[in-house]
Each structure stands twice: as C-alpha cells, then as structure tokens.
Design a protein around this nucleic acid. Structure first.
Length: 978
RNA sequence: GGAUCCUUAGCUCAGUUGGCUAGAGCGUUUCUUUGACGUAGAAAAGGUCAGAGGUUCGAGUCCUCUAGGAUCCACCA
C-alpha cells in the first residue's frame, strides 16, 4: 500500500466507513476491546448521546451537518478515552412536516384527505415514507457518524408508541390530562390545531378601527337572530372594497361622511377600537376598565351591536387598557385568546362566527356567511362606513400569529382538545433545574429555560392530522344527547383510556366507545427520546440514562429540551441528560440566515462530495462556540481539506522514511517528481499522470474487504529515545495537545480544540519537528509521535486518520478504537532549549529575508562562538535556517550577530552586506528601547510593585534586565559595523 | 413590553478565574524546485478590541450608560 502525493477522500471514505460498520466498531459493548480492562477494572464508564432524529424521508441540511460533526467528535473522543460510547441514531416520522408533504402530493393527484379514513391515510403515508426512506441514513454515514445503527429508533416504532401510551396513561390517572373546549391556535389551511410553540408571531402593519356602538338603556331588542338583510355586493364590488382596503391611504381617510352624517345615531355611543372588525358578529360584550372615569356610568348598560339587531352588555374588566385606543374594547370570546378569558370571568357565551375553513359561519348573518375573513372585513368596513359608525382608523404595527409551516394567519378557534396541565410538570422540572442537575452550554440558556417553564401555559397535544401516534382515548357513545348539536362538550367521565387504537369502536363493560381521531403532537412523543433510546424501564432503569449530553439546536430549546426535561423527570424521577450543548444557526458566508428564497442555502453533501467528510467537519467546527449563530463558507472547508492533505503528507513522509530501504519509497519519490511536473505541463499529460497516480490507491475497487482483513504483524513500536532537543520539544507539545484537546472537548470548546490541533499538526509537527527529523530520522520516535497525533486528530477528522492508520506499514488494527495517548517521556530542559534555538532560527531567517537582494545567490555561512547550545546543535541550526555551512568562530567573530536571541551566533556575510543591515539594526534598537520604556514605567509605579503578584513583578524586572542587555549587544553590533 | 446575545485585522471568528508585545483561518505583499505536501515552505504588512465613564497597580476581559446589530418570548384590542 502506498501513499499518493495528495489525499483524495473520495477514494477512501466509503470503504473506511463500511469497514468500521461491518466490524461492529460503533457498538458500545464491542469498542475498545483491545485494551479492555487496562484502565477500568470495573468495566468501562458509560457514555451516551442521542442523535436528534432527522426526518426519515428527508435530506440532511447544513444544521444536521453541524449536529453530526459535533456529536460524532464527542463520541469518538470518549470512545478513545476508554468509555463505552453509545451514539444512538434515530429517524423522525416528522408528523406535521411529512403530512404537509404528503397532502401536497395527494392534492397534486387530484385527491383530498377528506376522501379517506384516518386509517387509510395512515397506511398511505407509511408506505410513502418507506419509499422515500434511506437517503437520510446514507447521508449520516457519509458524514462519518459513528453511531450504532442496529439501535436506530424510528419515532413510530412499537417501543416508542408503548412508552408514550404508558406516560399518557400515568398522566391521565394523575389528572394531568384534560379534555377541554378552549381556544386553540388553528391553521385554517392545514385544518389542525397547534401548540403555542408552533406559532410564529410577526410584527405587521395593520389598522386599528374605531367603531361606534350605540348605547341603549336595556337589552330589549336582544336575542340575536335578527340581522342586516341588505343585499350583499357582487363579487366585483367586493374586489373593489378589498382593493380600497389594501391601499395604504384608503382606510386612513375614512371619516364620518357628509352623506351619512344625518344617519349618525342620536343616542350616546361608545367607541371601541379593534383590529378585527369582522369578528364583531361574535361580540358578547364591550369591556371598559373599572377605573376609567370616562365610562364609569356606562357599566351595566347595553350597546346595540352594529350590523345586527343584538344588544350586548357593557362590562368592567381590567383587560381594557385605558391608555390604548379609546379605552373600550369589544369582547369576542370565541375568536380571541384574551376575550376568551374575559368571557370566562363574565360568563359570556362563546359564539363562533368563523368556521374551521376560515370562512364566516351563518351566525354572522346571511350577508356575510361564506365569505373569507378578509372579504368579510372589507364588507363590514364598507357597511359600517355607510352607516356612519366607522369613526376612524389608525395605522398600527401589531403581532400577528402565523402557521410556522405555511404562513397562513392563525385563527384562534374554539375546539375540544386534549391538554396537558403543565403546571406541576413545569414546577418539577424547574426544581431539578434549580438544583443545577443539568449543565448548560451556553450557561445563559438555563435561565432562559427556567423563565419559559415558569410561564408555560397548558399544552395542547391534539393534532387533527392522520400521520402520527393515535391518541389512545375512546369516548362513550351517548344516545340520549344525539339530537342537540350544541351539547358536544364532553365530560371527563365519558372518556376512557385504551390502547386498542387499531379499532374504531370498542366495547367495555357493555358500553360502546368510539376512538378519538386525533394524533399526538410530535413533541409529546419526542419528549420521551432519551427514555426510549436508552431502553429505560421502570424495573431496571438504564445504565445509559441519563444521557451524558444532549446536543441540539438552540432553536428547539423550548419545543424539545424543555419537554424532554418535564417528561424525563415525571417518568423516571431523574433529569434525562447531565449536560446540554446547544449550537446556533449556521449562517451563510455573510452572516445571513440561509433560506431557499434567498438562494444562499449550502448543501452539506455537496461539500462532502467535493472536499471530503473530514474537511467539511473541520470547516464547520472551526470557530464554533456554544449557542452562537455563525457564518460558514466553502473557504473554511477548503482550509480543512488542506489540513487533511497536510496530515496525509506528514504520514507519507514518515512512512517513506520507515520503508526507506525498500523500493516503495523510491517509487513514492518518483511519483512526487511526476506530480510536481504536472503543474507546468499540458493538461493532457497531467490527466494521464493523475490516472497513473490513482493506481496507487490504498484500496482498489475490487478489493474492498482489505480493511476488515487487515491484520499486520504487530511491531513493538513503543520503545523510543529522544535524540535531540526538537524531539524532546515535540513530545512536550504533543502531551500538551492531548491534554488541552481533552480539556476543551470536556467543556465543549470545539473552536479551541480545532485551533490547537491545526496549529500543532501544521506549525509544530510539520514545520519544526519534521524538518528537524530530516537530520535525525529517529524512526521509533517518528512512529510513536505520528500515532499519537493521529489518535488525537481522529475525533475531528476520522476518515483521513483511519485511512493513514491502515496505510502505515507498522500499525495494527483500527485507529477508531485505540486509546487516548498516555504522556510521552522527554527531557523538559532539552525541550525548553529547543524554543531558544527556534528564536535563533527565526532571527536568522528574518535578518536574511530583510537583506533581500543583497544575499540573493550568495552562499551564507553561520559561525558560532563559545555557546554550548549551538555547538551541540550546529547541524540542526544550519538545516533549519537553510544556510549553507556552519562552523566555530575560532576566536574571531565576524558578520551579523544574532543578538536578539542572545546567542553567540553570526551570519558570516561580507562587509557590503553588513552595511545594508545597518538600517535594520538601528530600527531594532529603537523598538527594543520602546519596549524597555514600557517595562520601566510599570516598575516606577509603587502600587504595582506593592500590589501585583510577586512573580509578575519579578518577571518585569527580568524583562528590564534582558532588554537592557539586548540593547547593549545591539549597540555594540552597530559600532562593529561602523 | 420582557429577556438573552453580539460589536476584536480587509472577511469570518477565537481570546475560561482581569496579568508580559491581543491570536487563528482565509485574503493581501515579497521571496523559495529544500528527502512529504505549491492543497506547500519562508518572511511581512494589517488592530485606539463600537463609544463614553467607572472599579483596579493593571481592563478586550468586571460594572454603568450610549450607539449599532441579532435572536427569543409576550394577548396588547
């Protein structure tokens, strides 16, 4: 097996993944079996994490890409740390989302959901999902997720449903569930109710209309029924009305017109303000604030409801805000959440005037029935204006509720639904949160969540869609109340819990019951995810419950995290996870939200195909911190791809050294020469060369089993000695990397971990250590350090590291289940000395680069005086500075002294070149002088000396001494030149 | 109306409890066929850390205010 000159992920990723999977290396019980027992005599510690289940029949988007990168990095890290890591994958039936897709497909075929029974629809969607399924799972694999596929849970699996029913039954018995006729958020388009959380409030411009209600002394003409009977305008007229309404200036100019002023009511009027005039047919009262002096005398009187013959009372309620509008507000309990509450307080009737399809009901009167709410609004405005009852309008901005899926305006509608009384659940959850049983990243979200739970309203869990878990409730068939359509409000006693949801009708104790047709809100079942995925049971619990971490998007903190905690503590008595890591949104390159309409959506699979999975993961993790929405672009993926290639070539180089005596290295050299030639040659030649290089692939198409069969003779590569300062130094740096990456990942500091990995691989290992090894060729150490580096890098870039592991001539088994590196032995003094040598090297390079043309083509030599460090490492210094020769001064130093590093080292250059250097030297003296001034100033401050920690003061003193010495050295240099 | 977060290099972002000359990637400039890598190597330019005040020996970091931006929650008719 040979290394090609550049890493081509497409050639390896799927084979590597298949090898891992077929070897069962993702399963918790079987990983790390090589070193089992070595560290944990009582068995491996458990580590569990669940994948927020992606839509079973959808494709992954960029958010999934981030999710999997984060979660898989954690999983692989803890697996290498010796834990029994269980990353549990899932697939979501995505109740509403999938239903919307299916209903659209149904409509496209000219069918309607109303043609089928619920059971038929359920079966149809099931088939639809099974057909579409599979893409998502392939994409999760492509991203490298090391999840236990055998344990994949689909949200409609039997164990999920039975667990959800158990909880529901417990809640029903505990009295946490109730059937209530309440106003719910209702989407007229999808004809289903929603929980509060599924509603999007948007600030929109609108109008506040002032309407005069005529005050009457008593309710003599009350009784409803009677209505405005004038003919309704034609469709054309209506269109005009709407158009006028739509014009910005239209309603604003409405006045009590001349022609109608004579019809202005003579009686006293009360002017109410409303944004929804079309609901006035459902008005049951006009409310004023009890402390509002303007209306005090009117309380208890009645008003005639315009456009009808009904009268309604004027009531006192604090809901009316004297500061807002006219201070008087119409109360429509059946179509407004606030008014519903007011209605309850004053025993008002809930008169529905808008139907489930969003059209006006007959109760609104013949003239208006059947109109859409928009049409009705226009007509009402026109009619009121004609009657002189419309007294004005104001442009306002107000929050309007929309369906989060289709954007249709949510119509608060009176419905009988199942509700969870969340008060006790939320209280329980808050208790656990207040005990800090869950650690949040970012921390601030804990407070946000607690605040949310404290104000949580009852949770509507009924959905009027067939695709979901059926609600296991049956209602007694009541023969006696058959006739009165009004009396469909049901008693709790009429309902029984039963899980035979496949039956439409059941008989219990001789009484017939019919099934409720609704399904559960998907968040109700999702709330059970940690319980279900870890196979938790009442009898045995689960060693993997609570989860170690719940990683998901910050946007579903309320919808999912909050509900998992409530259900988790309710069912198990324990919080469902110990830590929560919330990621922000992935924004486009300019920090804008990605959206289809903007056309700035990045498909993660495109990037994976182009640059490889590892590059994508590195790119998306770079700079990522908890809770923050952050820009992302192809550029960062390219940087990741480059790092993969760098690591590949590091390995290629080392493997070459290891195999130096064999032909393989010669062949590699040959290839590298060819590939370098590519760039300057015609394209057709380059193409042919590339094909030739491909033949060096690690795995041929016809030989895919190679990984699973890979069993090399296990060499004893653990013994090494350090031969040079650079080797002690790299051991120190790798130890430090292993430690800080572990620390960073344990506190979810992905950005720092990636950064450190990047700079260690590139700036330290390749640029300094490997350059030094071109001299020392310490093979045991090269092998050992590369192994450590690959292990540490593996969680972030699993494919390339495993591919390298398989390609190296001396490694055995799989990288994925190695152990996190133990510290390497090294001489700390020697390691520290290397940093001194680095300073000298850097200074030499800087000086030479500054001399530019003066040293072009000139052979440069180095001279060293009485300096043990340099003398012992002369060849290393020469190689790193890319100078041509090095030797002792033999007592007569000359040339440019590398004075900054304080060493007795000279660049042996001619007098002409020395003169060129003079300016740079002068500038350097000045700059060091400025630094010295700053330090001295600090020490002049008596408070600093007195109060700052002693070691800092000492450091400052040392700094002054060093700089002073440096300046004198530099000045001496200057005199030598002159 | 309430809450949370953000503002650091041309761009995108790091910068744990305050402590030497504020970092990275990408981009920019110059140089370089070096035993792997041009998807590379070497060197460099580029910052009043949004603004103002405060605490402190010392502030990008803590406090207050201001300005700008983002997000979430909320029934404002």
């Amino acid at each position: 097996m040979k290394f090609t000159s550049s890493y081509e992920p497409q050639n390896f990723e799927s084979d590597i993944y298949a090898a891992w999977e077929s070897e069962g290396l993702f399963n918790p019980s079987e990983v790390n079996n090589q070193s089992a027992g070595a560290k944990t005599p009582n068995g491996r510690p458990y580590y569990s994490i669940v994948m927020p289940p992606p839509n079973a029949n959808g494709n992954l988007h960029i958010g999934h890409g981030l999710t999997i990168a984060l979660e898989d990095t954690l999983t692989r890290f803890y697996r290498l740390q010796g834990k029994s890591a269980w990353y549990i994958p899932g697939a979501d039936h995505a109740g509403f989302e999938t239903w919307v897709v299916y209903e659209r497909a149904l409509e496209a075929q000219g069918h309607s959901r109303f043609e089928y029974s619920r059971d038929e629809l359920y079966a149809q969607v099931w088939d639809f999902v099974q057909e579409q399924r599979g893409n998502m799972e392939l994409q999760v694999r492509a991203l490298g997720a090391s999840c236990a596929w055998d344990d994949l849970t689909f949200t409609l699996d039997e164990n999920v449903v039975s667990r959800v029913y158990k909880t529901f039954e417990k809640m029903w018995n505990d009295g946490f569930i109730y059937r209530g006729e309440k106003l719910v958020n209702y989407c007229p388009k999808h004809q289903t109710a929603f929980a509060d959380i599924e509603v999007e409030h948007k600030d929109e411009p609108g109008f506040l209309w002032d309407i005069a209600y005529e005050v009457v002394e008593n309710s003599a003409i009350s009784g409803g029924g009677e209505e405005c009977t004038s003919p309704r305008p034609s469709a054309g007229q209506r269109a005009e009305e709407e158009e006028a309404l739509a014009r910005n200036d239209g309603p604003r100019e409405l006045r009590v017109s001349e022609s109608t002023s004579d019809r202005k009511p003579r009686n006293r009027t009360i002017i109410i303000s409303t944004t929804r005039p079309e609901t006035l047919f459902g008005d049951q009262a006009v409310a004023v604030n009890p402390f509002d002096a303007r209306y005090k005398d009117l309380i208890g009187k009645f008003v005639k409801l315009p456009l009808t013959n009904r009268t309604i009372p004027i009531i006192a309620d604090e809901h009316a805000d004297p500061e807002y509008g006219t201070g008087a507000v119409k109360i429509t309990p059946a179509h407004d959440f606030d008014d519903f509450e007011v209605g309850k307080r004053h025993n008002l009737e809930n008169l529905q005037v808008i139907g489930d399809d969003g059209r006006m009901l007959p109760a609104a009167g013949k003239r208006y029935a059947g109109l859409s709410t928009e049409e009705c609004r226009a007509l009402v405005i026109k009619d009121l204006r004609d009657q002189g009852l419309l007294l004005g309008s104001h442009e306002i901005s107000h929050a309007v509720a929309h369906c989060y899926k289709c954007g249709t305006v949510i119509e608060p509608t009176l419905k009988e639904q199942w509700f969870i009384d969340t008060e006790k659940l939320a209280k329980l959850a808050i208790q656990h949160l207040d005990h800090n049983e869950i650690k949040f990243y970012p921390k601030s979200k804990q407070k946000v969540l607690t605040n949310y739970l404290a104000g949580l309203k009852d949770w509507n869990i009924s959905r009027q869609i067939p695709w979901g878990i059926p609600i296991p409730m049956f209602k007694k068939v009541r023969t006696e109340s058959a006739g009165t359509g009004k009396d469909n409000f049901s008693d709790a006693a009429d309902w029984i819990f039963d899980t035979r949801v496949n039956l439409k009708e059941i008989e219990v104790g001789g009484v017939k019951y019919v099934r409720d047709e609704d399904t559960f809100d998907t968040w109700f079942s999702s709330a059970h995810w940690p319980i279900v995925c870890t196979d938790w049971t009442e009898a045995h619990g689960s060693p993997y419950y609570p989860l170690n971490v719940m990683e998901t998007g910050a946007d579903i903190l309320f919808a999912w995290i909050a509900r998992m905690i409530m259900i988790g503590v309710y069912v198990t008595g324990e919080v469902p996870f110990k830590e929560v890591y919330l990621h922000g949104l992935v924004l486009d390159a300019h920090g804008k939200k990605m959206s289809k309409s903007k056309g700035n959506v990045i498909n993660p699979m495109d990037l994976v195909a182009k640059y490889g999975s590892d590059a994508f993961r590195l790119g998306i993790l770079r700079g990522r911190s908890a809770g923050m929405s952050q820009a992302f672009s192809e550029e960062s993926v390219i940087a990741g791809r480059n790092l993969c290639n760098k690591l590949w070539n590091i390995s290629r180089f080392i493997d070459g050294l290891v195999n130096e005596s064999t032909e393989s290295f010669e062949a590699t050299k040959e290839n590298s020469r060819i590939s370098r030639g590519e760039h300057g040659r015609a394209q057709n030649v380059a193409g042919a060369t590339r094909t030739a290089l491909r033949s060096n692939r690690l795995v041929d198409e016809g030989n895919q089993t190679e990984f699973s069969l890979a069993k090399k003779t296990s060499g004893d590569s653990l013994h090494y000695d350090t031969l040079s300062m650079s080797e002690d130094w790299i051991c120190r740096e790798l130890n430090s990397l292993a430690k800080s990456v572990a620390k960073d990942l344990k506190s979810y500091r992905f950005a720092e971990a990636v950064e450190e990995l990047y700079s260690t691989i590139w700036d330290k290992y390749a640029d300094w250590f490997l350059e030094s090894e071109k001299i020392f060729k310490n093979l045991p150490l090269l092998k050992r350090t590369l192994e450590n580096l690959l292990i540490i890098a593996h969680p972030f870039m699993p494919f390339v590291t495993e591919t390298i592991w398989q390609a190296l001539s001396w490694t055995d088994g799989f990288l994925i289940n190695q152990s996190w590196p133990t510290p390497l032995n090294f001489d700390p003094i020697s390691a520290e000395n290397f940093t001194r040598l680095q300073e000298t090297v850097l200074e030499a390079r800087r000086v030479l680069a500054g001399l530019k043309d003066a040293v072009k083509g000139v052979d440069i030599g180095l001279l060293y005086g009485d300096d043990g460090l340099i003398e012992e490492n002369a060849e290393l210094l020469r190689a790193l500075t890319h100078t041509d020769k090095i030797g002792p001064t033999k007592g007569s130093p000359r040339g440019i002294r590398l004075a900054l590093s304080g060493r007795e080292v000279y660049l042996d250059v001619s007098d002409d070149i020395l003169k060129v250097y003079k300016d740079a030297l002068t500038e350097r003296i000045l700059s060091v002088g400025r630094e010295l001034d700053a330090l001295e100033k600090r020490l002049e401050n008596p408070n600093y000396v007195a109060k700052a920690p002693a070691h800092l003061v000492e450091e400052t003193r040392q700094g002054i001494a060093d700089k002073t010495a440096l300046i004198s050295r530099l000045k001496q240099e200057l005199t030598v030149i002159e």
